[in-house]
Structure formats: C-alpha cells, structure tokens
Simulated assay, not measured.
Amino acid sequence: MLSKEKLQRINELSKKKKAGTLTEVEAKEQTALRKEYLETFRATMRDNIEHLTIVDPEGNDVTPDKLKQIKANKFLN
C-alpha cells in the first residue's frame, strides 16, 4: 500500500494540474506516482482475488479452475 504522504502528494499534484499550475518536473513526478499507485493497486487486487474461494448456496466449492491452479502453484512455490 502506498504511504499517506505519497497519496497526499498525488492529490496535491492533481489539484495543481486542474488549476493549471503544474510544472514539467511536477508532471513527471505525478506520472511516476500514478504508475506506482497503479502497480500497488493491481498487485493488491490480484492477491485478494487469488485468495478467494467461491461457494454456492448449497456449500459447494465452485471456485473457477484457473483460480484453483493459481492457488496450487503458489502453494508449491
């Protein structure tokens, strides 16, 4: 997860961009921070999905085979 300071900086830069006062250096910083944020978000989301088990109302495991394979591969590594 991104630190609070980095999230605050992303928001500051976004406000400056909307106001039209963003410098080239700040634009590059904003791009790098956004990239880092998206990478972190995607990794967290992927990890959350890979730890899901889907159960139908009758209590049967109906987790997709692809997800089961990913879990099995992670367990073996």
Rank of each mutant, 00 (worst) to 15 (best):
His51Gly: 13
Tyr37Ser: 03
Glu29Pro: 01
Ser14Phe: 10
Arg42Lys: 15
Ile54Asn: 03
Asp47His: 11
Lys28Trp: 01
Thr40Cys: 05
Lys16Thr: 04
Ala43Gly: 10
Val55Asn: 04
Thr44Ser: 12
Met45Glu: 11
Tyr37Ala: 08
Ala72Asp: 12
Arg46Pro: 01
Gln8Ile: 04
Ser14Glu: 12
Lys35Met: 05
Gln69Lys: 14
Asp56Thr: 07
Met1Lys: 11
Gln30Asp: 07
Asn77Leu: 14
Glu5Ala: 10
Ala27Gln: 13
Gln8Asp: 12
Glu29His: 09
Lys15Asp: 08
Gly20Asn: 08
Glu5His: 00
Met1Trp: 04
Thr53Phe: 01
Thr31Asn: 13
Val62Glu: 04
Lys15Ala: 13
Arg46Thr: 05
Ile54His: 01
Glu26Asn: 06
Asn48Thr: 09
Thr44Gln: 14
Ile70His: 07
Glu26Met: 09
Thr31Ile: 06
Val55Cys: 07
Glu36Gln: 14
Ile49Asn: 05
Ile49Phe: 10
Phe75Asp: 15
Asp65Cys: 05
Lys18Leu: 12
Leu7Phe: 04
Leu67Glu: 06
Arg42Trp: 09
Leu38Asn: 12
Asp61Trp: 01
Gln69Ser: 10
Lys4Ile: 10
Thr63Pro: 07
Lys4Gln: 14
Lys16Arg: 15
Leu7Asn: 10
Leu33Tyr: 02
Lys74Met: 07
Asp47Ile: 02
Lys66Tyr: 09
Pro57Leu: 00
Met1Pro: 04
Glu5Ile: 06
Leu52Gln: 15
Thr53Ala: 02
Lys6Leu: 11
Met45Gly: 00
Gly59Ala: 08
Lys68Glu: 00
Thr21Asp: 08
Phe75Gln: 15
Glu50Leu: 12
Ala72Leu: 15
Leu67Asn: 08
Val25Phe: 08
Glu26Trp: 04
Lys17Arg: 15
Lys28Ser: 13
Lys18Ala: 13
Ser14Leu: 13
Gly20Ile: 09
Leu13Asn: 03
Lys71Leu: 06
Asp61Gln: 02
Ala72Asn: 10
Gln69Ile: 09
Leu22Arg: 10
Glu58Tyr: 12
Phe75Ser: 15
Lys28Asn: 12
Asn60Leu: 03
Leu33Lys: 06
Arg42Gln: 13
Lys17Thr: 05
Leu76Cys: 06
Arg34Cys: 04
Asp61Tyr: 02
Ser3His: 04
Leu13Val: 00
Leu13Ile: 05
Glu12Gln: 15
Thr40Trp: 01
